[in-house]
Computed example of a mutant assay.
Amino acid sequence: IMNFKYTLPENLINADLCEFANGGAQVTIRTKDGDIYEKILISNCMWIVAMAGYNELPFKIDDIIEIYQTGNDKNPKQKIDWFFFDKWE
């Protein structure tokens, strides 16, 4: 069983994300303070499961105001350096 650490609120779930792997989509996130975070991996449009270069999210889920995909998100050139947040139990 997978216990997900970061679940998106319903208003941020987007079923139209372009997946590069089965259920996996790379996204960019904008927070309330205007910061932009890239190379975030979302599973099944509802869980943030990894982020390149971070062991923990550097922002709170409640601070997210926009999740979108850039051209690189839709077809990532590199699919490495993600630090996964969740563990199988």
Rank of each mutant, 00 (worst) to 15 (best):
I65V: 15
L57Q: 01
P9G: 02
D73V: 05
G23A: 11
G34P: 01
P58V: 07
K60M: 10
N55E: 14
G23F: 09
S43I: 12
F59Y: 07
N14G: 00
E66H: 04
V27E: 11
P76Q: 09
I61R: 02
I67L: 10
L12M: 03
F83V: 13
K87F: 05
Q26T: 14
I13F: 07
K87M: 01
L17E: 04
I36L: 12
F4W: 02
A15W: 05
L8H: 00
K79V: 11
N55R: 04
E89K: 14
E38L: 08
N55P: 03
I36Y: 08
S43P: 04
I29N: 06
P76D: 07
P76Y: 11
Y37F: 14
M51K: 08
L8M: 00
A25I: 11
G53R: 07
W82T: 07
T7W: 00
E19D: 13
A50R: 08
A52F: 07
I36P: 04
T31R: 04
K77M: 14
K79C: 13
I80Q: 01
G34W: 00
Q78A: 12
F84E: 05
K60A: 15
N3C: 11
D33K: 08
D63M: 01
I1W: 08
K79E: 14
T70W: 07
I64Y: 05
A50H: 10
I80M: 09
I40N: 03
G53M: 10
I67M: 01
I67A: 00
I80F: 11
I1V: 13
F20E: 12
N14S: 06
K39Q: 12
A52K: 14
M51S: 06
D62F: 04
N3I: 12
G23I: 07
K87T: 10
G23H: 11
Q26V: 13
D63H: 08
Q78E: 15
A50K: 03
Q26Y: 02
Y37T: 01
D62R: 12
L57D: 01
N11H: 15
K5E: 08
N11S: 14
F4P: 00
K32Q: 14
T70H: 06
A25R: 01
K5T: 07
R30V: 09
K87Y: 08
F84G: 05
L17Q: 09
E66L: 13
G34E: 08
G34F: 06
Y68V: 03
I36G: 01
I67S: 02
K79M: 13
I61S: 07
D33Y: 10
K74M: 15
D81M: 11
D73K: 00
A50I: 05
N22M: 15
K60D: 14
Y6G: 01
